[in-house]
């Protein structure tokens, strides 16, 4: 059985609890064991380093060291958590280990570099395999047009992420196809949703959000799907503001990656927490 040290990240405990539910259910159906890292802390959300870079390194060194103690690879479900953990790992592997380890040792921990940090999407493709996933599909999402929205921090910067070509990625589209749905390549698929500047640059952020949703609609998509709960929040929770910012009229449901997989594996929308979305997902599921 495949087994991972699960790093859920803060939003899965808060606004995106439905993503926690969906992740757990999908993992269960696929026979992947997720052991939540005991005592994990916030990764710093790509903001902590602007206030205190050393603190960001310290907490993520601890997060990874906890997984090492479990003897398991780290599995994340959030792009930004993935970036923060991988950035710390990159620094630790390039000299910062010596700085951090004396402090970790006081808590009975040590960073050695044995636990890789992966994302649920990457795990499915590289470790689990899409052919195997296809066999588990109980309800192919036939006829559903899905706009795969990557989000920045699963692609960029490539020297930290490096799973696939940042300019022309296809992991999401491959996955969408494996679930029986039709991927939609839309203009804004690699653009930024603006989440991280929602407080400091609200207007630009809403324009960014609105542009992505509108572009997916113009591409003929029924919904967007994203491997990042922060992007999902932005595309869903701020969709009304996004629409106003770009003078758009239509709504488009925004799904968590694990919700889309969950639907294909036979779970109901309710089981996957889709009633918690701001934009109604009912249209998407009518007749299914």
């Amino acid at each position: 059985m495949m087994k991972y040290a699960f790093f859920p990240g803060c939003v899965l405990e808060g606004a995106s609890q439905e993503a926690y539910t969906a992740t757990t259910k999908v993992a269960q159906a696929l026979g992947i064991e997720l052991v939540e890292i005991p005592g994990w802390t916030c990764c710093g959300g790509s903001h902590l380093q602007d206030y205190d870079k050393t603190a960001a390194l310290a907490v993520n060194a601890r997060n990874i060291a906890l997984a090492e103690k479990m003897g398991l690879p780290v599995l994340t479900v959030c792009n930004t958590c993935t970036l923060m953990l991988r950035e710390a790992k990159h620094e630790l592997d390039n000299g910062a280990k010596e700085l951090v380890n004396p402090a970790l040792q006081q808590a009975g921990l040590e960073y050695t570099g044995t636990s890789p940090v992966t994302h649920f999407l990457w795990m499915l493709i590289k470790d689990y395999g899409l052919d195997k996933l296809k066999k588990k599909v109980k309800r192919p999402l036939k006829g559903m047009k899905v706009a795969g929205y990557y989000g920045c921090h699963i692609l960029r910067p490539p020297h930290i992420m490096g799973f696939e070509d940042h300019a022309n990625p296809h992991s999401l589209e491959d996955l969408i196809r494996a679930l029986g749905a039709e991927p939609v390549l839309f203009d804004a698929r690699l653009k930024c949703c603006g989440f991280h500047s929602v407080f400091t640059s609200k207007e630009d952020t809403m324009k960014a959000t609105g542009t992505i949703n509108l572009s997916a609609l113009e591409g003929g998509a029924d919904c967007t799907v994203t491997p990042c709960p922060l992007c999902q929040m932005q595309l869903d929770m701020y969709q009304p503001e996004g629409k106003r910012a770009v003078n758009a009229n239509d709504d488009i449901p925004a799904l968590h990656l694990t919700q889309l997989i969950g639907l294909a594996l036979g779970y109901t929308a309710e089981e996957l927490g889709m009633k918690r979305h701001i934009v109604n997902t009912g249209i998407l599921l009518a007749g299914r």
Binding site: V11, T41, C42, G44, G45, L48, Y51, D52, V59
Partner: peptide, 16 residues
């Protein structure tokens, strides 16, 4: 940015 450090030091997790 400071809220992230404060929350981590206070509870370990972010208070959204």
């Amino acid at each position: 940015a400071k809220a992230f450090l404060d929350d981590i030091q206070k509870t370990g997790r972010l208070n959204e």
